[in-house]
């Protein structure tokens, strides 16, 4: 049996400003359907994708937070957040809609090395 390739998706963009967050999520869910192991990393403005209490009704968009909350249902549980990005924005992991693992900027290279493929959004 051939081994499935592992995928690391690095998210760097905030939600709603453009389609990056939705496209990234689409890829993540698709990988999960093919039973490829998926890891997500959120850094920079992308941490705002995970923030609780999003209400995008007035800008006619689908709630990114609701889609991300479903990740455990797709067996995507390896979710990393760059700790510095939270600090810079005055946030902590308790402000996020999912349990995540906090990592330092200096550990990102390790994460990249651990995966077969890396996609960035």
């Amino acid at each position: 049996m051939s081994e499935k390739k592992s995928v690391l998706i690095i998210n760097q963009k905030s939600p709603y400003g453009d389609a990056a967050a939705r496209e990234s999520l689409d890829i993540a869910l698709t990988c999960s359907i093919f039973e490829m192991p998926v890891t997500l990393l959120f850094c920079g403005d992308a941490i705002f994708q995970l923030l609780k209490d999003q209400q995008p009704g007035k800008i006619q968009q689908k709630k990114i937070e609701a889609m991300l909350s479903a990740l455990p249902m797709y067996d995507i549980t390896e979710i990393y957040v760059e700790h510095d990005s939270l600090i810079q924005n005055g946030l902590t992991d308790e402000d996020l809609c999912l349990p995540v693992t906090l990592i330092d900027q200096s550990s990102i290279s390790q994460l990249i090395n651990l995966h077969d493929t890396v996609l960035t959004f």
Binding site: K62, K63, A66, M67, S69, A70, M73, Y74
Partner: peptide, 18 residues
């Protein structure tokens, strides 16, 4: 219920899980 919580229709895998 899945749709209410997560605002999308599930594919097979998450449906089975739900």
């Amino acid at each position: 219920e899945f749709y209410q919580l997560f605002e999308h229709s599930p594919a097979m895998r998450p449906l089975v899980k739900a």
